[in-house]
Design a protein around this nucleic acid. Structure first.
Lengths: 213, 213
DNA sequence: ACAATAGTGTCTGTCAGACAATATACA
DNA sequence: TGTATATTGTCTGACAGACACTATTGT
């Protein structure tokens, strides 16, 4: 079981890597992962949350199964299967020792088939960003619509029409304005602050027609 | 490892069930499945193809990983994980003894969590039918455009505008007309016969904007 | 010629994107 | 009041769906 934990920092999508303590590949940076504990875990998703909690001290409201990776070559110890998940979190304050964020477009060569797993996660996340509310899970609350739009743009790698973006967010109906709360600071009109509606903290909503074709 | 093998018969989506020979649930109808053979199988998809070949004597050009299912309750023998796949084939001539097609909307209660696995497969197939070439794998070649449209309509459960359908197939560019080949038989204009273009036998193509929103 | 289905041309409503106008903060 | 960004209003082009027309077979 492996987890691709993603966040957005400095306008860049970043993946969390952990220095491995045991062989094989001790000392190398790799995805957080572990084995299922049959006594504790109700399923593999449970195991993924447990790994995030134990190794990083965090819970991820949004966790989605990515795919399973299997074969004789992925682990030097022999034939293996791993169920991979991905999780999205807002930028974190501090990380435990041995953990670090790495921008996804400048990753070191990863052990096992973790490179392929990250690639699959990126493809899934970018694809779903086109037609779902998935990116809201990367945005620290409360957030403004322009901030959220910047998150979408970072993921999609292209600029989005602001009018279309507002219409789409309205249609998705996943975020709600916080009554009376406005951003402040700049020498300009403040923006309405929003939060994710409770029922979509752990789920997402899709629309038929996405932001881009 | 379990496989949801789907076909279209009598305008109905059907799933292949196999009478189990061993415990648990010996005698019950269940999805074809089996364990990975580490010597033979390069990965779980390989194992799925091997099961289809050994138990049903067929190869499925299109096979897609669905998801993994895990937990303590899915198998009476204890905690287990299964990587599920789904495959699409045109209607088959004959089945080995113990195997039968069952319409997906009138399934018996299935052992293990095979009911959930089938449900997940149906959701995936129906969803992808909206915006991809996936349904062509259910159509026996050669086929006419009206025949293919009927397959899409059976999957989506609603009628499709014929003009839009032609435009969409043209855009997908996954099928090609067979030069000089026309359907025959009816007392009406014959239809152009098509086949799947070689490079899309095992893959599919998606479009941004689907057939329905 | 008629019946029946295949395939095409064209119009129209809908919706994403462009552009412009308005709103509201701080300096 | 000026500047900068937020937010809204309106127009326009592209495209899915509707409809009507043409094409081609067997009877």
């Amino acid at each position: 079981m492996d987890v691709v934990l993603l966040t957005l920092q400095e306008g860049q999508l970043q993946v969390l890597l952990l220095k491995r303590e045991r062989e094989p590949f001790a000392g190398a940076l790799a995805l957080p992962g572990g084995y299922v504990h049959e006594q504790e875990d109700q399923d593999c998703a449970d195991a993924a949350q447990r790994v995030l909690r134990d190794k990083l001290g965090l819970q991820s409201p949004y966790l989605e199964q990515l795919a399973s990776f299997s074969g004789p070559g992925r682990d030097p110890r022999g034939w293996s299967v791993s169920v991979a998940f991905f999780a999205l979190v807002p930028a974190l304050a501090d990380l435990p020792p041995g953990a670090q964020w790495r921008p996804v477009n400048r990753l070191p060569t990863l052990p096992f088939d973790h490179g392929s797993i990250v690639a699959a996660a990126l493809e899934r996340v970018r694809s779903k960003s086109q037609y779902s509310s998935l990116p809201v899970h990367l945005c620290p609350e409360p957030f403004t619509l322009p901030q959220l739009q910047a998150v979408y743009e970072a993921l999609l790698g292209e600029s989005i029409n602001a009018v279309s973006f507002r219409r789409k967010m309205d249609e998705l109906d996943v975020i709600e304005p916080i009554p009376g709360a406005k951003s402040s600071g700049g020498a300009h009109r403040p923006a309405q602050l929003y939060r994710v509606r409770g029922e979509f903290r752990e789920r997402l909503r899709v629309v038929g027609r996405g932001l881009k074709a």
